[in-house]
Design a protein around this nucleic acid. Structure first.
Length: 216
DNA sequence: GAGTACCG
DNA sequence: TACG
């Protein structure tokens, strides 16, 4: 079955209700196993070491991490356990196939946990080598007030609500658009009542990192 | 500057 | 807006 695709700005697609409740619950169960193997860690700002309010982990061959000494980067292992990231669940691979059909396989799936008080400032995803592939985001749990602008820091912005099960695709002219999370609407979903502790919102961000050197 | 503090 |  198909879903409405709303183009919020060129290259930025909102797909409300992309995952039904059953798929959301199955994905949360997958994530619970992933977090057992790769616990949430607190990323820190480059240089200053200030902590993010969002906690993170990853699955797939590469994971996004940040700390004072190394800054933003992709690495193959968990920064605290040293173990390789767990594999991406089938539902995540399927979402990438459906929402980024022209792109090479995803290499990184960043898992963000937002407690109700957590926020994410305006930023661009620019740590990837391959900017031709879109960034795909899946929302689970409490609604996020999500802000999106243009490719320049001072470009006008607007906000939308990302609900549990929604997908968002940042590609084409929006691949380098500024975006962030203003706030979480506490208690807006029952999905995460059992896990993780504190409920809130889980966000999966799927990305291609390496340039594809497919020379057929 | 993917962060917070502090201003008017 | 200022600030690592």
């Amino acid at each position: 079955m198909g879903h409405a695709r709303i183009e919020l700005r060129p290259g930025c697609l909102h797909v409300p209700g992309y995952l039904d409740r059953e798929a959301q619950e199955a994905l949360v169960a997958d994530l619970r196993r992933i977090v057992e193997a790769a616990p949430f860690f607190t990323p820190r700002m480059p240089r200053t070491g200030r902590p993010f309010s969002v906690r993170m982990t990853n699955c797939g061959p590469l994971g996004w991490v940040s700390d004072a000494a190394g800054g933003y980067r992709y690495v193959a292992t968990h920064p605290e356990t040293g173990a390789p990231w767990p594999p991406m669940p089938a539902l995540v691979l399927q979402a990438w196939r459906e929402l980024a059909p022209a792109a090479a396989p995803a290499e990184a799936c960043l898992v963000n946990h937002y407690l109700p008080q957590a926020r994410m400032g305006l930023h661009r995803d620019e740590d990837e080598e391959d900017m031709t592939a879109p960034v795909v985001s899946l929302s689970l749990g409490d609604t996020a007030i999500f802000r999106i602008g243009g490719t320049g820091r001072r470009d006008p912005t607007f906000s939308i609500r990302l609900k549990s099960g929604d997908a968002l695709v940042l590609g084409g002219q929006s691949r380098l658009a500024f975006h962030g999370v203003d706030r979480i609407v506490a208690g807006s979903s029952t999905l995460l009542a059992g896990w993780p502790p504190g409920g809130g919102r889980l966000n999966l961000t799927l990305r291609r990192v390496s340039r594809t050197e497919s020379r057929p």
